[in-house]
Amino acid sequence: MTILETIIIALIKIVLIIVLMLLSVAYTVYFERKIAAWVQNRKGPNRVGWLGLLQPFADVFKLLLKEDIVPEKANKILHTLAPFIALFVSFATYAVITIGPAVEIFGYKINLVVADVNIGILYVLALTSLGVYGITFAGWSSGSKYSLLGGIRSSAQMISYEVSMGFSIAGVIMLSQSLSPMKIVDSQYGWMWNAVVQPIGFITFLVSAFAETNRLPFDLPEAEPELVGGYHTEYSSFKFAGFFLAEYANMIVASMMIVTLYLGGYQIPYIDKLGLNSTLLVFLQIGAFLLKVAFFMFFFIWVRWSLPRFRYDQLMDLGWKVMFPLSLLNLVWVALLIMIFGF
């Protein structure tokens, strides 16, 4: 493979990922609204297009056509920068997500990941930490008390839960002995999914993922009853769309991470034993990955429309007094597994 070919393949992957991601975000919003409606015995969007399927586009056009308002007291540069940081972080995370095994197309062996870096998980952790900046900047630069409170809450919350998330991941890494997502997926061969092997780690990671994505019941940064719109109170039009996009993109990333780290990624247990055609196998595996991700997306939305929001002190209590010790406990458990059972 020449360098040129590598670059072209990488570009194609990037474009594909971005397009697919934007589409999936759009339809995540659509399903969010639909599921909310179903939970509340309503119909949800059903006017724009068949079954309301064009609703996301209408939403996007509406957002883009709105006036872009920058408050007088805002720090203009940071105010503009903030949504791009948020957006960049969530987009960049996709680079290391493995959605399937390596495939051969037109004679090229292609990994179904934009960048198969051997420190992928570290990369994800680093980027999600960066995501705090987008929100904190947005909160601070708006020059509004609601935004500021939202931003502060957000950074405090993300830092708190990052701890337990990091320790949960540590358990996974100890087992797989690699930071590469592909290796991690491979290490969960058969039913040895991390969710089965280390259930406490799975739960702490899941909860932390909710907190990291600012989804209910942890959506304190944008708690409407108290903070109007939270950190994006003063945003409108395209910049608001940026945050909106980032939030849902984060949700997708989180789902993908959960699947990759704990549910065996694209693997279907023991499917290779059936001796299927390799192309079919690849498609089945990609399908399995997407299905798993879709389930978690649904789970995110489902939880949002079922649970009430935490109070701020409860959130902190949960983060430091419950999730953090639990993730440590999980580490001990994994260590024991390795020492006693020789995983």
């Binding site: 599921i35 409606a37 179903w38 015995n41 309503r42």
Partner: peptide
Amino acid sequence: QMLSPSVT
């Protein structure tokens, strides 16, 4: 609730 019919 999701599975029950809508009243809209």
